[in-house]
Nucleic acid binder design. Structure first.
Lengths: 236, 236
DNA sequence: CGATTGGTTGAGCCCATTCAACGAATGTGG
DNA sequence: CCACATTCGTTGAATGGGCTCAACCAATCG
């Protein structure tokens, strides 16, 4: 049996309510299921797609963790997001029918593929699905605005505190611990996302450790004082 | 006659191809027209909507210039975009049915309103319109990613050069001069958008002036050396 | 085992900020 | 109409937060 391609089954998916099928009736989910392509494995370090690839499908992260990053001509890269279970990857490619970022797995991951042409047809059949999808796109716009606020007007400490809080919330939504984080990305990835150098990320994590806000052991981060972290944001 | 509300007529609009009706047939545009609400005037300094307002409509800028900005609890604001003719405002509110930013007119402006409920119905009738709208949302995601790249990995000079280049392109698309810019926003607005202080914006404009890349007289900026500006981006 | 990747920490530097003064333009009320 | 306040923009001097450069350690991999 080839485990690299398994039929997606939204109906039985535990994170259904965090993903595209959110808010759909059982019948609607069945219809969606029929239009889903196969589930795919992306090995750690492997890429789901690369900049310039023709756009064919959206992907819902099933398990694992991805990052997306855009490359500037001169080699500079900017991580634009980290996607976990239930989150959709590839939304930016709708605009140009070409992927404008790289999507790379940070750990062994699985994604559910759905052909966008098919998805648009489905949207015509199910106004409910289309409505939800509009919200999904809008939510991504809002998320990015949050990052703009972070990059444009927060200091390094605040950025990191906000980043950790955001991760904690998303883990909690997924019934995982919101205080015992295992970061799947490198310090450099975090830095790129937050507009900081990796050394700065490392230093500030150490500082948070000293302040007894965190317990940091490499990629294992335990949040000791979420309130203290939150207070950090917006003081000064 | 009340000039504050005029019927929108996409069919005869000069910027039709830059706006929602882009790519639609004449018949489809007529149908869209029937569903458009009235055209509204927003006076300079006035706001189209404010954070927290319930979401009812999208707005297409007809003439003028708007800015959108989000407010952080502690009073910090981040300008998230400047919108000119043909561009759509309010996309972020779809996600939560509430506006999460303020939209303020930088000069006397006119906007075309379309009720989002109606628009979604129209999208069900016209797959073409829905397809285009998906692209519009995706394009906004891409635009914001560009800003993230700018904020996350460019130095002040590069940010300003990229900003001016972007404005020039958008003016050119609208058959206006791409070298004789009249900036409708303050230095503070620019700074907020670019993650810089207003003094820094002012200083760098002066520096560009000294380098003979620009001619700056207050809000009138003439681009003397677009190539030079572009070269500035990504050197360092 | 050496090579590579990822992470931490230190010292010095520099770019953007902060604080401040000043000028120009615009608007307002007497 | 002028006096005054306010907003907007420019420029200078000093400061500092995050960067650069560098050394070092731990873990992983071939």
């Amino acid at each position: 049996m080839d485990f690299s391609e398994l039929k997606s089954v939204c109906g039985g998916c535990t994170i259904r309510e965090l993903c595209l099928p959110a808010g759909l009736s059982d019948q609607e989910v069945m219809l969606l299921d029929q239009h889903m392509s196969h589930r795919q494995v992306v090995k750690k370090g492997g890429s789901l797609y690369r900049t310039g690839d023709p756009f064919k499908s959206l992907y819902a992260v099933s398990t694992g963790f991805l990052k997306t990053s855009i490359l500037h001509e001169d080699g500079r890269a900017q991580v634009t997001g980290f996607q976990m279970a239930g989150e959709i990857v590839g939304l930016d490619a709708i605009s140009t029918d070409q992927h404008i970022c790289d999507a790379v797995a940070l750990v062994d991951s699985m994604v559910c593929e759905i052909t966008f042409d098919r998805f648009e047809e489905l949207g015509q059949l199910m106004s409910n699905l289309q409505h939800r999808f509009n919200k999904t796109l809008s939510r991504e716009i809002v998320r990015e605005q949050g990052v703009m606020l972070l990059l444009g007007s927060m200091r390094a400490e605040e950025r990191l505190a906000a980043f950790l809080g955001n991760l904690a919330n998303r883990f909690t939504e997924r019934k995982q611990s919101g205080s015992e984080l295992v970061l799947p990305m490198t310090r450099e990835d975090i830095g790129s996302y937050l507009g900081l150098k990796l050394e700065t990320v490392s230093r500030i994590l150490s500082r948070f450790h000293d302040l007894k806000l965190l317990e940091v052991r490499g990629r294992n981060v335990r949040i000791l004082d979420q309130i203290g972290l939150n207070q950090l944001i917006g003081e000064s």
